[in-house]
Design a protein around this nucleic acid. Structure first.
Length: 575
RNA sequence: CGGGGCGUAGCGCAGACCGGAAGCGCGCACGGUUCGGGUCCGUGAGGUCGGAGGUUCAAAUCCUCUCGCCCCGACCA
């Protein structure tokens, strides 16, 4: 490709709207252009990178028995009604709905479980056809409440989504690690350090899931890591070892005045007790407006995702003061003591500790010496605590750390959620019809591209890993006013192309500085320079994008030198 | 959806408080110059000042409404 003919130009100035390095660089290098909020076009350079990523995805998916298919983006709403997601609050308005000219309800697919389950129920009759994995690389549309960070979070995006079908949960359990390992290879081959973490299943549902997280300050998720035992989980689901509560002999329940003391910090200071000797009451409301009373020891925080899963709703919102008072509780002074008709979910930490301080449901008063279950009861006790940096690891007691991460991939054990809802069954050995056991596996390609840039750039621009670089070689000619230089560069370009290299040839009549700066910005692995200086030595200058030094290589040895650099970063040579 | 910010030439911005000829840098076109890290000189093209309404002799500027984009939160690959 001649640079002079390349569609899409580089930009010197940083676009005002871009904050993340990946966003700025993908705009400046001419990879993408924005059409609307969270909706982007790919220019040739960006599209080439996406193709490289897709190639890796195909190889790895094919390698674990995947068969590539293609399903539609526009789908009848019936499918989504059948799975229950059309009316569920979970995808909600993110699912774009419209009617076709025949007034049929349609949707834009935000993922393809419904479509693939429909395919499976048509094609799969017998256990003999199982297990099976199909995948596609296809557009998804999600009308997200907010897009951000360029390609990090968009509304229209392409995803590699794979779906496996099994006769038994055990078979899924055996296959799941194969996908997990393939994902590890995919990210490694793209040059991205991705950390697999235990994750919440969210709107997808299912038994278990892992996210592949690219550690980055730009990340939207909080990860909890144990450096001792390598435990890693999304904070939404992370476990922690809760400190022991205070011990002692139970004393009689007593009400004490605590004016203007509505926080745990103020309360423990006023009464001279540790936060671990207090009980915290937090109120949430379900989408239907039902109040949920969460109770947890004062030294811990409530994890809303754990709580929502426990209650069986897609999401919770903080309850309003009005809703809290409606059940007889007093904000800042609430507790289950003397409260009826409210669903109380308690963290298991409340069973540890005696003589706790808790609200009296009366403005300005708290109970002291509250003991469970002597003084109050709850409807449900479970782990609803949020793991935080500095907490103890539930598995080894180590000190938990917290980092931010970008979710680049997600694998789920779906089980029979969709097959049961949509009646996708097969006949087992005994001739009994059973729902298919499913797994699903996704990687966002554009987001992965952004993650690669986040991890591979410097002050001058992108530094592509060889495996995903838009071209292998960036050929620069300097001194375009001299015909012999142009001729030599043209000849070298032809030679490299016929040798099978992907070459971007900067043949523009620009100064050396402009060309070098663009080369650094675009970030192609190997830069070759042809100039009066190199001609005089019958050589070509070669420089790796990631290296500082450049080197003169005799014309005859050039291919060897290029291959050596490409191989250095794990890429494949021409051929 | 809540909070904050911004819409003036392809990009980055000034002009707005205090109404009175639409500007600057980069980029782009042409001519010359230079030729190993964003050369230099000259000439030029390019803007319904996001849109609609209002106030006024006069609106980029003041008022009202509206559309769009970015950032922070609640959701996801």
């Amino acid at each position: 490709m001649r640079f002079s003919a390349l569609f899409g130009r580089t930009q010197r100035e940083v676009p005002a709207d871009a904050e993340l390095a990946s966003h700025q660089l993908s705009l400046r290098a001419g990879l993408i252009r924005q059409l609307a909020a969270g909706i982007y076009s790919y220019l040739p350079l960006g599209w080439r990178v996406l193709h490289k990523i897709e190639g890796i995805l195909r190889e790895e998916m094919d390698g674990i028995g995947g068969q590539e298919i293609r399903m539609p983006v526009v789908q009848p709403a019936e499918l989504w009604k059948a799975s229950g997601r059309y009316d569920a609050p979970a995808p909600g308005p993110a699912l774009v709905r419209f009617q076709d000219r025949g007034a049929h309800d349609m949707v834009l697919a935000m993922t393809h479980e419904e479509a693939v389950t429909d395919l499976a129920r048509q094609e799969i009759r017998s256990y003999r056809q199982l297990p099976l994995m199909v995948y596609q690389i296809q557009t998804k549309f999600r009308d997200e409440p907010r897009s951000r960070g360029g390609l990090i979070r968009v509304r229209e995006f392409t995803m590699k989504d794979g779906y496996s079908f099994h006769a038994t949960p055990e078979c899924l359990d055996r296959y799941y690690p194969e996908v997990y390992n393939a994902y590890q290879r995919i990210f490694a081959r793209c040059g991205v350090e991705a950390l697999p973490v235990e994750a919440d299943t969210g709107m997808m549902g299912g038994a278990a899931s892992h996210e592949f997280m690219v550690v980055s300050e730009a990340g939207e998720d909080t990860l909890i890591l144990c450096p001792e035992c390598r435990y890693a989980a999304n904070a939404e689901t992370a476990e922690l070892a809760k400190p022991e509560g205070v011990t002692g002999e139970p004393l009689p329940l007593e009400m004490v005045p605590t004016p203007q003391t509505t926080t745990i910090a103020a309360l423990s200071e006023l009464l001279g007790v540790s936060p671990a000797q207090t009980l915290k009451a937090v109120f949430y409301a379900t989408p239907e407006g039902k109040l949920v009373f969460a109770m947890i020891r004062g030294d811990l925080d409530v994890n809303e995702v754990k709580l929502a899963n426990l209650v069986g709703v897609a999401e919770l919102r903080p309850a309003t003061d009005k809703e809290i008072r409606a059940v007889g509780a007093v904000p800042g002074y609430a507790s289950p003591i003397g409260l009826d008709g409210v669903h109380v979910v308690a963290d298991d930490s409340i069973t540890s500790g005696v003589n706790m301080v808790t609200g009296a449901n009366k403005e300005g008063y708290h109970w002291i010496n509250a003991n469970y279950p002597r003084d109050f009861c709850v409807d449900q006790t479970a782990d609803i605590a949020l793991a935080r940096e500095g907490d103890r690891c539930a598995h080894c007691g180590g000190t938990l750390q917290s980092v931010r991460g970008i979710e680049a991939g997600h694998v789920f054990k779906l089980g029979t959620k969709y097959s049961a809802a949509m009646d996708a069954t097969f006949l087992d050995q005994d001739g009994v019809a059973k729902p298919l056991v499913m797994g699903c596996y996704g990687i966002g390609t554009g987001r992965l591209l952004s993650c690669i840039i986040e991890q591979h750039h410097d002050d001058y621009g992108i530094v592509w890993p060889v495996s995903v670089a838009p071209f292998q070689v960036h050929l620069v000619s300097i001194g375009t006013n001299r015909p012999e230089i142009v001729a030599a560069a043209d000849a070298l370009y032809a030679r490299l192309k016929s040798a099978g290299y992907d070459v971007l040839y900067d043949d523009r009549e620009e100064s050396a500085g402009v060309k070098f700066n663009d080369a650094d910005l675009i970030g192609i692995p190997v830069r070759l320079t042809v100039s009066a200086k190199t001609l005089a030595q019958d050589s070509v200058e070669i420089k790796a994008r990631w290296a500082r030094d450049r080197e003169m290589v005799p014309n005859a040895d050039l291919e060897g030198a290029i291959d050596a650099l490409l191989a250095q970063k794990g890429g494949l040579a021409a051929g």
